[in-house]
């Protein structure tokens, strides 16, 4: 395993993910399936339960964006559908290896989740590499926690949620 603090070469195909106009990168091995959001309807997960759908922009506290594509992320327990604006395969220049810069230490210190694993500089622009698997797991955890809280104190929490919305 390579250190997150050292620049390293990313192997394999890289997915380019649009959240509105901003581009993020992700390792395609994290993604089980890629499909349009419209196809998610009536699609059950492995346990026959309805698919957990989470807006990636919401998770990243990004500004709201339109969602057309869904990235199906398989975790140990279940599959999560992360909704994004669009996804494609990043066509990396063949002669240049995709060097992943580590996240600056201040940012590492500041971030609560280890969702961004590094930065790839393309055409002078920094592109952040997302750890989709980690994001999916954390999202499931948050959802479960939310459900538990909802069950424990149904009335007050629902009020709280409504007010938050």
């Amino acid at each position: 395993m390579m250190s997150a603090t050292e620049p390293h070469i990313l192997a394999g195909n890289i997915l380019r993910i649009w959240l509105g106009p901003q581009i993020f990168l992700a390792n395609h091995t994290h993604v089980a399936q890629l499909l349009p959001v419209a196809h998610l309807r009536d699609m059950p997960d492995e346990r026959g339960q309805p698919m957990q759908q989470i807006g990636l922009a919401d998770l990243l506290q990004h500004a709201p964006v339109p969602t057309h594509h869904a990235l199906l992320i398989a975790t140990r327990r279940r599959t999560v559908a992360l909704l994004v604006t669009a996804v494609d395969l990043w066509a990396q220049p063949s002669d240049v290896a995709p060097v992943i810069q580590p996240l600056p230490p201040v940012l590492r210190h500041a971030l609560t989740h280890a969702w961004i694993t590094g930065i790839l500089i393309a055409d002078g622009q920094p592109l952040q590499l997302l750890n989709l698997r980690q994001i999916a797991q954390d999202a499931l955890k948050q959802a479960a926690q939310g459900e538990r809280e909802q069950r424990g104190q149904p009335i007050n929490r629902s009020d709280d949620l409504v007010s938050r919305n």
Partner: peptide, 24 residues
């Protein structure tokens, strides 16, 4: 370029001459 999940004091990152800078 904004980095998700960071405080407002750190509005994002810049690349200058191939070096990634954290904006403060």
């Amino acid at each position: 370029v904004p980095v998700p999940g960071t405080p407002t004091m750190l509005p994002g990152i810049l690349v200058q001459r191939g070096v990634v800078y954290t904006v403060v």
